[in-house]
Design a protein around this nucleic acid. Structure first.
Lengths: 306, 306
DNA sequence: TCCGTGAGCAAGCTGAACTTGATATGCGTA
DNA sequence: TACGCATATCAAGTTCAGCTTGCTCACGGA
């Protein structure tokens, strides 16, 4: 019978693209992987790897096997999740990745709540941009990804992953304190057609959305600077150098001197949790998602300082 | 991670009901099974077996695991089948069980054809009644079952098995040569309301069907004897001791002195192949089923000797 | 041409999983 | 009640799958 361990090694080679990388991922020596794969070739009766340069490529048969290996591994994971959910045991290590703002504004709360409720649970956090965390999830390097989405309606499932939007984060226009007449009042973007704009980087989602919103309000913004870090944007706005869009989480629980205004029409980004579907009922995942939901429900738009 | 081998041992205990039986099925010592299961309990973190008398019973958690083990094993088998079908290799051992008449009348042809086409294929045959061969199939003791069905329309799937009717076998009324006026002509059962009947055993399907057919023709047959073996029935009929129903296969390619008549309305049993669905595309299975279909298509009603 | 990098082979080591033989316990029976 | 049989389990020893280490080979970039 086909060895499951060998199949998983093949799977890892397919994911990472080389024997060496697969070996590192499984924390064994490259030689061991190579040996296991030649055994797997004997078991399967087909050639699975072919050399291409100094690396290896998967044959068609191997890719077929990888798909099967995925379902087999998924089935085993499902069994484990079922088992854990049956005994209601929240144990183990939950590996979370979140985009930087969430990592700062959401996760501290959630992580402390989780470890208070479940002392046996270890939570680790990495900050990754949405796209990165999705690939990390598929690589099985993390268990839970927190991603932000600006554009289309929430995907229920993408690349075999399970999305769940647990909060919306409004986007605000930040003005310098002097510039603001009615602190906290909603403003039209078109009123700022002549202002200088402090933008997120152009390749970022927020930058794109801002640009698009301005254009659909009928003007092309005068961009004074593109900065990746929200705190830089805040500083520039506070210094009176221009106006800028900021997501609520960026100013959540952090007093700013800038004047914060909702837009009319309102803009928001969606914030979602992403998991592997076979872990859906794992108690570790269940309680983490519940805690995120709780955070999302309790999340009030930031205090609007004048 | 849960060990797949251990899960399969648990599965086998669930099927066979005791550690000893599971050990025999996997051809290892009972002690090894016991040890593996205590390891599996550690891995799962739950008690899986509880002693009941001198045997063991599966806990709820264990039964949950067995279901998962089934899907995992199925996935592995599917991978192997896919692999084999990809390389079009008809190799290995095909374990067939068939009911006795089929084992005599169908399988010799089919087996010789198969081993002529695929010299690397080994075919083993057991004769089992339909019900027995289905449980054997579920126990994974055989790969292919040939069953006969008298009553309801062909089941597409039952107990997770895949049925495929590949031929119908007409039922004939056998008369003593003297008794017959028009050899080979269809007869009405009601014309034999006063005859003595040589029946299959009452608990057999054929016996049931015969009895029912007589009753729906409006009479209760005078049963002279109940015999399990068709050749005994033939002998009794030829001796002029009564009339009897016989399936076509029982007299196929074997000249009988008895006079054989189709019935009006015609009666028939259905003959089906049964496999495990995950093996559906295994080339061994594919070619065996094809060969059965071929036999079914070529199967002519037996020569009707006057 | 040289050097770094990745795959694969050979030899030896470790531990998982098996066997054998002994022990405990439930069940039927003399 | 005592005995024998059947089943599970424990303890100790054995085997071999799968790992590591150290080497070789082949490719590709400086």
């Amino acid at each position: 019978m086909l060895g499951v361990w060998r199949l998983q090694l093949l799977r890892e080679i397919s994911r990472r693209g080389s024997i060496k990388a697969a070996a590192e991922a499984m924390s064994i020596s490259p030689s061991a992987v190579s040996q296991q794969l030649s055994i797997l070739e004997r078991e399967a009766g087909v050639q699975l790897l072919e050399k291409t340069g100094r690396r290896v490529r998967l044959t068609d048969a191997a890719q077929l096997l990888v798909r099967h290996a995925d379902t087999i591994t998924g089935a085993i994971a499902a069994a484990e999740a079922d088992l854990a959910s049956m005994q209601q045991l929240v144990t183990g290590t939950l590996r979370v990745a979140a985009f930087p703002t969430a990592a700062r504004a959401i996760l501290p709360d959630v992580m402390t709540a989780l470890s208070r409720q479940h002392p046996a649970l270890r939570v680790t956090l990495r900050d990754l941009e949405a796209a990165e965390s999705l690939t990390a999830l598929q690589m099985d390097e993390i268990d839970l990804a927190i991603v932000d989405e600006y554009d289309e309606p929430a995907r229920v499932s993408d690349g075999g992953l399970e999305f769940c939007e647990f909060m919306r984060d409004p986007l605000y226009l930040a003005l310098s304190p002097e510039e603001s007449s009615m602190p906290g009042a909603a403003v039209r973007l078109s009123d700022f057609r002549d202002a200088f704009w402090i933008m997120d980087t152009e390749d970022s989602h927020l930058g794109q959305v801002t640009l698009r919103a301005c254009r659909s309000s009928g003007f092309e913004p005068h961009v004074r600077s593109n900065c990746k870090d929200f705190s830089v944007i805040i500083a520039l706005v506070e210094a009176g150098l221009g106006v800028g869009m900021l997501p609520g989480l960026a100013i959540h629980d952090r007093p700013v001197r800038a004047s914060i205004h909702p837009t009319d029409p309102p803009l928001a980004r969606r914030i979602a949790s992403v998991i592997r579907p076979e872990r859906h009922s794992h108690p570790m995942i269940v309680s983490a998602l519940a805690e995120l939901e709780r955070f999302g429900a309790a999340y009030a738009p930031p205090r609007l300082l004048g």
